[in-house]
């Protein structure tokens, strides 16, 4: 494993003794050159997991091991600097992820200048190389982010992250703010870069079909805990956990005949508030197969097929 979360936990305090259980005892690893897809609805804690994993949030509990070295519990500026050439991230919102007062050149060069010092002139060639590598014209160095479309900004974000040649790239919903035709562009670009650079990626998204396309393995989170993890096709085509089944069956396919034939799945209820959770299966409230002991005992992940784990008492 390149990076591994062991019982990683992140609670946010709301005061008055209330705590949001954003990530609760999640153990998940990413191997070298592997793309792990992480799906879940909003409020499932998938983004918090990604950010806690790489130190953008302080850990409430558990540990993260990167190449056999434990990462700090709370990050100081020096800790980020130490891991800058190993782990980088691209963000969901292509608008807030680029500083509107900086030119494209300054944005992309930032990592190099912080790491190696020097000035814009000395890294110019490298910046142009990366700008063109992500499919943007090298002439656009002195443009500002607001002049680019969402997809183009996302490319700039990718160039900024990759110019320091990290081993692991966290992609936090990198395509959910983009148009369909542009999503494919960005996904293909990420796929190409992954191949040529040998990157490992954590690909966080809510679009299951896109995640299946991108990932080697797929993990599903619900209300802060991991409910299923396995090879992408296995999770997508033979989901084991009732929640994964619900998630996949509620995703409409671009195929009218298939949609007309679909039996309407019972999709009941909504994701509850993750405040002060009690023991028991998190999904019990919405599960069509719920049994009394589901509400009392928290299910553990267990192997259901080769490399395929799910957390459900009924399996």
């Amino acid at each position: 494993m390149l990076i591994e979360a062991r019982k990683l936990r992140k609670y946010f305090s709301l005061g008055h003794g209330k705590q949001v259980h954003a990530v609760d005892d999640v153990s998940l690893g990413i191997a070298e050159h592997e793309v792990l897809g992480l799906v879940g609805e909003s409020g499932s804690g998938k983004t918090t997991f990604g950010k806690t994993l790489i130190g953008l949030y302080d850990k409430t509990g558990g540990q993260v091991v990167y190449r056999d070295r434990e990462l700090p519990q709370r990050y100081q500026a020096q800790d980020y600097k130490r891991q800058a050439s190993e782990i980088q991230m691209i963000f969901q919102d292509p608008y807030s992820s680029l500083n509107p007062r900086m030119t494209i050149q300054e944005i992309i060069a930032e990592g190099l200048l912080i790491r190696d010092g020097g000035n814009l002139g000395s890294v110019r060639d490298k910046v142009v190389y990366w700008l063109e590598r992500v499919g943007l014209h090298g002439d656009h160095l002195s443009r500002y982010p607001h002049e680019f479309s969402g997809g183009q900004r996302q490319r700039v974000g990718i160039a900024r992250a990759l110019i320091v040649e990290p081993k692991l790239l966290i992609c936090d919903e990198p395509i959910s703010a983009l148009d369909v035709s542009v999503q494919a562009q960005v996904v293909k670009l990420l796929g190409e870069l992954k191949q040529s650079l040998g990157l490992a990626m954590l690909f966080i998204a809510h679009d299951l079909s896109m995640v299946r396309y991108v990932s080697d393995r797929m993990a599903v989170m619900y209300l802060g805990s991991l409910v299923e993890v396995g090879p992408a096709d296995a999770v997508y085509f033979s989901p084991q956990h009732p929640y994964t089944k619900m998630l996949i069956s509620s995703n409409p396919e671009p195929d009218p005949v298939h949609e007309r034939q679909r039996k309407d799945v019972i999709v009941s209820g909504e994701i509850p508030s993750p405040v002060n959770l009690q023991p028991g299966c998190r999904f019990a409230g919405r599960c069509p197969l719920v049994e009394p002991h589901c509400r009392l005992e928290t299910p553990m992940l267990r192997t259901v097929a080769a490399n395929h784990l799910a957390a459900c008492h009924l399996l």
């Binding site: 369909v180 079909s209 671009p254």
Partner: peptide, 23 residues
């Protein structure tokens, strides 16, 4: 056609994803 090809369908094999170039 381009829009359809840009969406990964529910096909068992990972068909190549076709982007629409440009914006």
């Amino acid at each position: 056609l381009g829009l359809k090809a840009a969406m990964p369908g529910k096909t068992a094999q990972k068909a190549e994803l076709h982007e629409i170039p440009g914006s």
